[in-house]
Design a protein around this nucleic acid. Sequence first.
DNA 1: CCTTGAACCTCAAGTTACTTGAGGGTTTAT
DNA 2: ATAAACCCTCAAGTAACTTGAGGTTCAAGG
Lengths: 259, 259
Amino acid sequence: MNNNNKFSVGEFSEKTGIPIPTLHYYDEIGLLRPEKNPSSGHRIYNYQDIIILQKILSLKFLGYSLDEIKNLLNKTSFTVDLNESLSLHLQALEKEKIQIEQSMKSINRVIRLIEEEGTVDSNLILNLIHSMRTEHIQKEWMDRHMLTDVVDVVEELEKKSEEDNFSLDKTIYQVSKEVKQLYGKPVEDPKVQRMIKNYVEEYFSLLSEDLMQKFADMNIEGELDFQEFENMTPSPFTEDEQKWFDQAIDYYIQQEEIE
Amino acid sequence: MNNNNKFSVGEFSEKTGIPIPTLHYYDEIGLLRPEKNPSSGHRIYNYQDIIILQKILSLKFLGYSLDEIKNLLNKTSFTVDLNESLSLHLQALEKEKIQIEQSMKSINRVIRLIEEEGTVDSNLILNLIHSMRTEHIQKEWMDRHMLTDVVDVVEELEKKSEEDNFSLDKTIYQVSKEVKQLYGKPVEDPKVQRMIKNYVEEYFSLLSEDLMQKFADMNIEGELDFQEFENMTPSPFTEDEQKWFDQAIDYYIQQEEIE
DNA sequence: CCTTGAACCTCAAGTTACTTGAGGGTTTAT
DNA sequence: ATAAACCCTCAAGTAACTTGAGGTTCAAGG
């Protein structure tokens, strides 16, 4: 197609960077219908078609579906009523963006953990991701049960630096692993107590004094319907492991108080 | 299903927030296969299935496809080789994020323009979006042609506040409109010259002195293959309008120099 | 003028992660 | 026992393409 402003699909595709099958598709759905050579059926694109395609790409960029674009293309002017749909798109994009940012954060944390540990039990990792994923849901649940103090704790934790966050990941991971190894031993076994000590120190070194106090106070108060909460946060432990772990911590606290 | 840890699809769906058809689908593709009542065929989910589902959702959150998830679910541990795929996902997410941020910026600018103008010619709007969309491509093109000074100009423009950016949008839009109205009149017509004055002032008030100088110097230098560049930036004007506009600017500059 | 390879054509089917619907069986509460 | 609520399977639809088979047309060289 030697003419200066008539192009074959191939040339047009080359010029615009849009793959040929996509151009075929746009033709098929009536979005961009070039001229056709009546005898051969070959498509003939012209300069105007480049402009239409640019419009299509622009509207896609704004988040419109091809169907919506087909309608918008006919409009010669845009009026304020378009703003409504633009605002909607904007909201959707905002949500997507937040999603992506959270995912990126989680991935970074997982990558680092794997890097440092070499091999990591998949259950524990997935548990970690799960809690990152549902952080805001858990917060909302706690808000609903007016556990505002705990929300404070969580938020305090969030404000911590990346570094601290990561070392907490590592501690939680290490502890999970050790619990699984040590499970079955009596809770007063020195190995067990050393592990617990490690955990408690690391975990609370990241929290300020007064929050620790609030946290402790709260622990004393009665039962709530934790059923729902438990469903949201499957622990990496079996039920028995969890019980054993709780006992070991109780024992540790008692010992501390005696001293 | 009165049993405490056996659930029907409905109950399971309620508990987890995943729609029933989706659970059916996950069953079908072998991702989450609950027990089945052999006589009725009804699905029976248990507590373990909640955990599996949470794993699935976690891996989805990281950006894996259901197919990949099916394989990952069988793994009991994750090793460093997983990091490669995680990094890839991270990169993809980063790209998506940038895309979204750009779209959001563009939409905001368009919304504001429409708000202030009421009704806007769709060609001009789409042209505006097009240039936002291809900003980085244009910059790359200029880099390639070693027009680093122009890149400086563009970057300077980018650094300008949202406000300035917007008032530039508006100016460009207004000028486009006026060009279309005034086209045909002689370039020395006072109306035309007033319009040009307006444009030049607004446009260059946003650039610093030395960049203006560089820009001017550069303009004098010879031709390049602007063909390619033109393709990337379809002007909102017809060819004739563009010519007329260029002449009007030339005339304006001459007058300025005489004074 | 003929041939050959590249480019083009149409039409059908595949992709992902679901959603919707038709037509019919099962459970559960009354 | 019967009705409402719930469940089943299987088929088809969705968006925005991509892939492939099988056949036609074009452009250049001999």
